[in-house]
């Protein structure tokens, strides 16, 4: 017994090493471990507050670009206002309004306080959290384009899985052909994503636009993702090999909008029944 204790004491350094490495590996491989959801993400209080301070300092240096973005968004809003006015005119002439066509999303602005575009898996952190009504799985957009989905939340902060993360797949529709596909980022260039599962019989051109399909209940339909700029078709492949250049520059994100869907819960619970039934 005493020999065993002596042996354990002599190899204590190696044992501590194994223990700590074991914990690390467990953190890496376990998908839904408690520490991860509790504090090991950048919306945890300590990290998020540091990031908020940094963001406050850095935001002074970005005022010019922020102005440009705001001006651009203003311009788009004016356009939308015009088309809305047109709809109102048309409605007042003869058409009845329809309860189904009512707005299914509301948008809430948030400031990006941490952002990565160059890692293998990229995340953002924003300064809005559970207390502002943010929940896991909500869609995030900016400038009419997709940013990602909410990943983890704390009281005042939330992390977002960015489009530049291979774990995020986005259902999309190509116009003008109307074909469906799936957009996924492959580590490397933060300006382009892969477009998968477009059958080979579809005719595509460079510059075809890729929009969200609305099949994912968290994201509204018709958000521009980007345009096709590289395409290839191998003789023995069933699908096109397509690269899409993103319309959004993720390295310059400053303000984003959280899409809160009025119907997401209802729709998801209905569609979950399909999965749970045989």
């Amino acid at each position: 017994m005493s020999k065993l204790l002596q042996f354990l004491y002599r190899s204590r350094i190696f044992l501590v090493f194994l223990l700590l490495e074991g914990v690390s590996v467990w953190l890496i491989v376990s998908k839904n471990s408690y520490p991860r959801s509790a504090f090991l993400h950048s919306s945890s209080v300590l990290i998020a507050n540091t990031l908020a301070v940094r963001s406050q300092i850095m935001s002074y240096f970005q005022l010019k670009e922020v102005n440009e973005v705001l001006a651009y968004e203003n311009a788009q809003l004016i356009l939308e206002l015009e088309s809305a006015n047109y709809l109102i005119q048309r409605e007042s002439l003869n058409e009845k309004s329809d309860s189904v066509s009512g707005k299914s999303f509301s948008y809430h602005p948030a400031k990006v306080i941490n952002n990565s575009t160059l890692k293998t898996n990229n995340y953002l952190t924003i300064d809005k959290g559970v207390k502002d009504g943010i929940k896991k799985g909500m869609g995030v957009i900016s400038g009419g384009s997709v940013v990602g989905l909410v990943h983890e939340t704390s009281d005042h902060f939330a992390t977002i899985v960015s489009v530049l993360n291979p774990k995020l797949l986005i259902s999309c529709r190509i116009k003008p052909s109307g074909t469906l596909g799936v957009v996924q980022w492959k580590a490397g260039n933060p300006r382009e994503v892969q477009l998968n599962f477009v059958p080979r019989h579809i005719y595509l051109q460079y510059g075809d636009s890729v929009f969200t399909s609305g099949f994912n209940s968290a994201l509204p339909e018709g958000l521009l993702i980007g345009t096709i700029y590289k395409k290839g078709l191998k003789a023995d492949e069933a699908f096109h090999q397509l690269m899409v250049s993103l319309s959004l520059d993720f390295s310059r994100l400053d303000y984003v909008y959280i899409c809160m869907s009025n119907q997401q819960a209802e729709r998801d619970s209905l569609e979950m029944k399909l999965i749970s039934q045989p």
Binding site: V23, S24, L27, I28, H41, S42, S44, I47, L51
Partner: peptide, 23 residues
């Protein structure tokens, strides 16, 4: 080792990469 484990966890929290920096 404990010091670096803590340091790694801090960085993991910052980078959203549980366990990688700690390991």
């Amino acid at each position: 080792m404990f010091l670096m484990f803590g340091e790694g966890l801090l960085m993991d929290a910052y980078y959203n990469t549980p366990g990688i920096h700690a390991g």
